[in-house]
């Protein structure tokens, strides 16, 4: 409405800060993520038991809220008598490592491709767009499973494979944001005064697309965590005895009809972590670029 044009909003650092703290989703998400990161970092201090210590005499002890449970194993023990809480705590390390690692690799690939395509246009853009189309045509889960099966499952392999597969959204978003910034007058001005391409990319383009990069990075982190859990669940991801949450669900699956908590506990942990990361990503997008919401 034209009548609203008399209202001016000034965006200051303080107001961005209050926009973050005033955004419920971001605050809840950040709180949960921070808590899980802390738990992962302090795992040796927090875990009551050795997550790999088997005790065949103390198998399948239910959590403490069950009448058969005990405070010695707050979340019970698994089919090999390993303390479930300790495994859950160490499992946070795996999920976070996968999330960070895969997002880092795919972020690097996707950002370089997207920014190049958006900035240089023409043939570069054609090639990148083509590569994105090719990548989207390949079924992620199937390819990841096949490669892990051939190369052999390990944490590094899973991180690398997911990193090499999940760059598509980075490329798509970075390409369109770069295209948008590229057409701004200040980029033309920088070119006019003779700044080098490298300098323009680093000082004009990157700072303006970094918000979108953060949003995609968080969402892809969540994506990678879910995919790792699914791969491990199918037995073709992180290998035992590592305490991956997906693997824990898989190991508990045979007993789930009798001891539902075996799958409920790691599943809820996974759900909470992914939910929290997504809340943060969505929130950052709402705050920095509400028009990109969909």
């Amino acid at each position: 409405m034209s009548s609203g044009s008399t209202v001016t909003t000034t965006v200051t650092k303080a107001s961005i800060y209050t926009r973050f703290t005033g955004h419920q989703g971001v605050m809840i998400g950040a709180f949960i993520v921070l808590a899980i990161v802390l738990v992962a970092l302090l795992a040796p201090l927090l875990a009551p038991h050795d997550p790999y210590q088997q005790n065949l005499l103390a198998r399948l002890i239910p959590p403490v809220w069950d009448s058969r449970g005990s405070w010695d194993h707050v979340l019970g023990t698994d089919h090999l008598g390993r303390d479930y809480l300790s495994r859950l705590i160490y499992g946070a390390r795996i999920s976070l490592l996968i999330g960070f690692g895969a997002a880092l690799i795919s972020g690097l690939i996707g950002t370089v491709m997207g920014v190049m395509a958006g900035y240089f246009g023409g043939r570069v853009d054609m090639v990148v767009t083509f590569l994105i189309t090719v990548r989207l045509s390949m079924p992620v889960v199937l390819v990841a499973l096949a490669v892990v099966a051939i190369v052999g499952g390990s944490l590094q392999v899973v991180i690398t494979v997911l990193g090499l597969l999940l760059w598509d959204r980075f490329a798509v978003v970075m390409r369109s944001s770069t295209l948008q910034i590229r057409s701004m007058d200040y980029v033309a001005a920088a070119q006019a005064v003779g700044c080098s391409t490298k300098r323009i990319l680093m000082t004009e383009i990157m700072p303006n697309v970094v918000n979108n990069l953060i949003v995609i990075a968080t969402l892809e982190m969540a994506h990678a965590i879910i995919l790792e859990a699914a791969l491990s669940f199918l037995g073709l991801g992180v290998q035992p005895p590592l305490p991956s949450w997906g693997l824990m669900v898989s190991e508990g699956k045979d007993m789930m009809l009798f001891e539902a908590w075996l799958i409920t506990i790691p599943g809820v942990a996974l759900f909470l972590l992914v939910l929290a990361i997504n809340l943060m990503g969505d929130g950052v997008r709402d705050i920095t670029a509400p028009e990109n919401r969909n």
Binding site: G25, A222, I226, A229, V249, M256, I263, F271, L275
Partner: peptide, 22 residues
């Protein structure tokens, strides 16, 4: 939609089996 995106499908499937089938 926020909940749905965070729900791992394999886990959701198992939970459905536990509750709806069993």
């Amino acid at each position: 939609s926020v909940m749905g995106q965070a729900l791992p499908s394999f886990w959701f499937a198992l939970m459905l089996i536990v509750f709806l089938s069993v």
